[in-house]
Design a binder for these strands. Structure first.
Lengths: 338, 338
DNA sequence: TTGTAGGCGTTATCAT
DNA sequence: ATGATAACGCCTACAA
C-alpha cells in the first residue's frame, strides 16, 4: 500500500502538498497538482481512512441502533439510512438493542469508543441518562419516532394523531359503524397519539366505546390474540384499526380463521405502511409512513450537524401520512386512493 | 478524553507500562498493575479504538455485503451475524449491493480503505475478479450460499439438493401426485441443486414431467405469477414446491385467489425457513435452513482467520436442512414434524 | 505556492 | 520489570 509519502516522493513534492491536493484545501499550483494526481494514479494511492480518522477525528461512519432488524418495520428504515449514508460517503454500523437497557448502554459505549460520527436511535427505549451519555460524548445523534422530545435533540416523526383519525374516517367511509381498535403499548408516544386520533374521530360522531379498545404489544402474535378477543367480546364489530401493521397481519390471520369475510363483514386497516401488508391476501390497507424519507432525513440531519456544525432544522418535525386503501377495506364500489 | 499518557502520568509510570497492562502482554509488577488500573478507573480511561487500529491494523469491524436488507431472507441472517460479531467485540457494517456490480465494487473499495477486518459476502453476484480484489487486499472473507467454490475461500452453505428431495417426498407423503415446481434463476447454484433434487425425487418414481416446472426469480411477484401459470396450464396439479419462501408466499396468494383449498386441492411448500411463512394463513410449510447458525458460523470462520491466521475449517461445509410441516401441506390426518 | 515538523493515541522494539 | 522512542499514515500550523 502506497502512502502519502510515496506519492510525495514520486511527485517530488512534500507530503503537505499532496495532502492539499487530496483535501482540495490550501493553495497549490495547477502544474504540481497535476503531477501529484498522476503520481497518485500511478501508485494507486488511496488515503488511509484510519490514519485520517485519527488526525481528523472523523470516521465517516454512522451507527444505527434499533430494537431488532428482524422486525419487518426496520429493514426498510435501515435501507433508507444506509443508502443515504453511502451517498454522503459514510458507512453504517448496525446495532440490535432488543430494546434492552444493558445492551443499549454497551453499544453506546462501544460506538463512542469507535468515534462514529453520528448515531441514529430508532429504539423506543431511550432513557434520559442514555441521551446525556451520548450528548456528553459530543457525538451528534438523531432519534426517530419522537422517542423523546428534547430541546436540541433532533427527532423525526409522523403525525400519529392525524393518522389515527385518517384510519377511522376511512373505515367509516367504507360503511363500518362498529370500529374496534388494537392499540399499542401505552408507554409509547406513538401508541397514545394514534389511540387519541381513534377516540376523537369516533367521539365526534358519538360512537366511541371504551370496550372496543384492546391493547397489544405491536407484535403479530398480539394482533392475532387481540383480534380474537375483540370479536369474541363484540361479534358486532365490523371494522378494526390496528395501531401497527404487524398487529394488522396477526388480526388478519385471526379474521380468516374466524371465517369472516374481509372486508364485507369486518374491514381491517393497519398503520406504518410496511411492505408485508401488500403481500397478504387480501392485501391490507394501512396508514403509510414515509419510511424511506424518514431515514433519509435522519441522515441528512446528522450530516448537517457533523459537517456544518448546525443543529438540525427538521428537529421535531412531524411528517405527513398517507392512506393506502387496499382490499382489506375496499368494499365493492368503495373509493380508492393513491 | 483521557489518553494513555494521562494514565501514565497519574500512575507515575511510562506509557509502555500502561500499554502492557491494557493488553496483558509483557511483564508488569503486580503493584504497578494495580496502580495503573486504579488510574484508569479514576480518569475513566478508554483506549482510543482508532489510534489502536492505526497501530495494530485491526479495526474490530466486520462488513456484511448483501443484496438488500429489505428482502425478508436477510434480516435474520444479518441478525445472527451482528449478534455473533458483537459477542466477539466486533462491530458490523452493513452494505446493500442490490446485486449490482458497480455498487459491489465500490463497497469493496470503500471497505478495503476502512480496513475492516473481514467481509462476509451474502450476495450471489461475486465475480472472480471481485474475489481476487479482496484477496489481494489481504482481507479475510467468507461467502454464503456457496456463491462460489474456490480453494481457500471459506463458504457456508446448505444441502440444497437433499432439500429439494425432502420437499418432494413430503408432498408425496401427503398424497400429492402431480407436483409442480417453481424454480429459481438457473444461474444460481442453489436453484439448480434444489431443482435437481426435485427432478430426482420424481424420476425415482417415474413422475417427472418437464412441463410442471416454471421459473421465477425468487421474488414474491414471480411466485404469484408462476403459480398462476402453472395452474392454468395444468389444473390437475395438486402440489407445488417453490424454490424459496418468497415465491411460496406469492404462490399462496395466487392459490387463494384461485379459490383453491389448501392443502386439500393444492399443497404448497417453500424453501429457506424465513419467518414470514409462519405468519400467513394458512401457514406455509418449508424446508428450513439453519439461518442463524449459518450467520454465526460465517463470523466464527472469519474471526478464526483474523485472529489465529488459520484457514476456516468449515470451508465448503453444507449444513443440514429441516422439514417444517405446516398447514399448507398437512392434510387432515397427515404426519407432523418438528 | 511549497516545505518542515509536531501531533493524533497506541503499540512495540530496544535498552536499561 | 520498566522506560524511551520510533513507528502507524495523515493533517496542519508555521515558516520560508
Amino acid at each position: 500500500m502506497a502512502t502519502i509519502r510515496d506519492v510525495a516522493k514520486l511527485a517530488s513534492v512534500s507530503v503537505a502538498t499532496v495532502s492539499r491536493v487530496i483535501n482540495k484545501n490550501g493553495y497549490v499550483n495547477k502544474q504540481t497538482e497535476i503531477k501529484v494526481l498522476e503520481s497518485m494514479k500511478l501508485l494507486n494511492y488511496k488515503p488511509h481512512t484510519i490514519a485520517r480518522a485519527l488526525s481528523n477525528k472523523q470516521t465517516y461512519t454512522l451507527a444505527l441502533i434499533l430494537p431488532d432488524i428482524t422486525n419487518p418495520f426496520f429493514p426498510e428504515l435501515a435501507r433508507a439510512i444506509e443508502d443515504t449514508a453511502t451517498k454522503f460517503g459514510y458507512s453504517l454500523i448496525l446495532a440490535n438493542s432488543d430494546s434492552n437497557k444493558e445492551k443499549t448502554t454497551s453499544y453506546i459505549e462501544s460506538l463512542t469508543n469507535r468515534y462514529v460520527d453520528g448515531i441514529i436511535f430508532a429504539s423506543h427505549e431511550l432513557s434520559l441518562d442514555k441521551i446525556n451519555q451520548i450528548k456528553d460524548s459530543g457525538i451528534p445523534m438523531a432519534t426517530l419516532d419522537r422517542a423523546v422530545n428534547l430541546k436540541g435533540l433532533p427527532s423525526i416523526g409522523v403525525q400519529n394523531y392525524e393518522g389515527g383519525i385518517m384510519a377511522v374516517k376511512h373505515l367509516l367511509s367504507m360503511g363500518c359503524s362498529k370500529i374496534g381498535h388494537i392499540c399499542g403499548p401505552i408507554y409509547y408516544h406513538t401508541s397514545i397519539e394514534r389511540y387519541k386520533g381513534y377516540v376523537d374521530a369516533l367521539e365526534d360522531i358519538n360512537q366511541f366505546h371504551p370496550s372496543y379498545v384492546v391493547q397489544g404489544d405491536f407484535s403479530i402474535e398480539s394482533g392475532f390474540e387481540m383480534a380474537n378477543r375483540l370479536l369474541s367480546n363484540h361479534p358486532e364489530i365490523d371494522g378494526i384499526f390496528a395501531a401497527n401493521d404487524l398487529m394488522a397481519v396477526g388480526a388478519l390471520k385471526a379474521l380468516i380463521r374466524l371465517k369472516k369475510k374481509i372486508p364485507e363483514e369486518v374491514a381491517l386497516i393497519g398503520f406504518d405502511g410496511i411492505s408485508i401488508t401488500s403481500q397478504m391476501e387480501p392485501e391490507i390497507s394501512t396508514i403509510a409512513q414515509p419510511i424511506y424519507q424518514i431515514g433519509a432525513m435522519a441522515v441528512n440531519c446528522l450530516i448537517d450537524q457533523i459537517q456544518k456544525k448546525i443543529p438540525c432544522e427538521q428537529s421535531g418535525q412531524e411528517l405527513e401520512l398517507k392512506l393506502v386503501a387496499r382490499a382489506s377495506t375496499l368494499k365493492s364500489k368503495g373509493h380508492s386512493s393513491i
